[in-house]
């Protein structure tokens, strides 16, 4: 436990000492939300809709980039080989990164909530605010696993490129920027393969109680997908160790 705490502390210090990396991932979603959810919102209920989807969007950035590009470059520099020689267990490296990411995403969500609540006049029951936060925070986990798989599989240049493609695909095809029902039919079908879509639907089921939502279906799908990403991440990790 104390090793994990120290490793996490180190990760946090790293992030705080090099804020140019972490700050954009925290503030970009808030900025986007302010523009599309509040400023450009004429009437409509897009402030509520986008609160649910941009929350998912906000956790995606730190999770995928923090791991995808971060892990790839640390691996390239031989930091992971060095770590293997240290007494700390190898899983603590991943867990420390995960905890750090959770803390940063938790904080990254807050400006969006504040802007929604006080700028976009979104009113939710106290319990619903907490449920929404829980879903958004949990959404970090599948994206972290995607990031791990990318970071362990690619060199740092490839990781940056692919992370961007994955990030944008998940955001757009998952309906985080525009509602999925505006898409042509084949893209709507495609959305069902995006974890971001299912997470957004679960978040929407909280903010919009009138919406028909197959909560069981989305929960099961995201659970199975997360297991899949876990397997992928473990595979990528084992593979890079053996290289």
């Amino acid at each position: 436990m104390s090793i994990l705490a120290k490793e996490t502390g180190a990760e946090i210090l790293k992030a705080v000492r090099a804020p140019e990396f972490i700050l954009p991932t925290i503030f970009m979603p808030s900025l986007f939300y302010t523009i599309f959810g509040v400023v450009l919102n004429k009437g409509g209920n897009s402030a509520v809709y986008l609160l649910a989807t941009y929350g998912v969007f906000a956790v995606m950035g730190p999770a995928i980039f923090g791991f995808g590009t971060g892990v790839a470059s640390e691996r390239e520099r031989g930091w992971l080989e060095l770590k293997r020689a240290l007494p700390s267990p190898s899983y603590s490296y991943i867990l420390a990164k995960l905890l750090t990411t959770l803390m940063f995403t938790a904080i990254a969500l807050m400006p969006i909530y504040l802007i929604a609540g006080f700028g976009g006049n979104v009113e939710l029951a106290r319990g619903d605010w907490f449920s929404l936060f829980a879903i958004h925070l949990c959404a970090t986990i599948p994206f972290v696993l995607i990031g791990v798989a990318l970071g362990f599989s690619l060199n740092s240049g490839g990781a940056v490129a692919l992370s961007n493609i994955v990030f944008l695909s998940l955001a757009i095809l998952g309906g985080l920027w525009f509602p999925v029902f505006l898409f042509p039919e084949f893209m709507q079908t495609l959305a069902n393969f995006m974890p971001s879509f299912h997470l957004a639907e679960l978040a929407l089921s909280i903010v919009d109680t009138s919406k028909e939502c197959a909560i069981g279906y989305h929960t099961l799908t995201i659970f199975v997908m997360t297991l899949g990403f876990l397997a992928l991440a473990i595979f990528a990790w084992l593979r890079q160790r053996s290289l």
């Binding site: 996490t8 946090i12 803390m103 807050m110 006049n121 939710l124 106290r126």
Partner: peptide, 18 residues
């Protein structure tokens, strides 16, 4: 960091409009 982030999250969630 854990205490600060938890405090921030609670402070926000408990004060959002209902």
């Amino acid at each position: 960091a854990l205490i600060v982030s938890t405090a921030i999250v609670l402070a926000v969630l408990l004060n959002l409009p209902t």
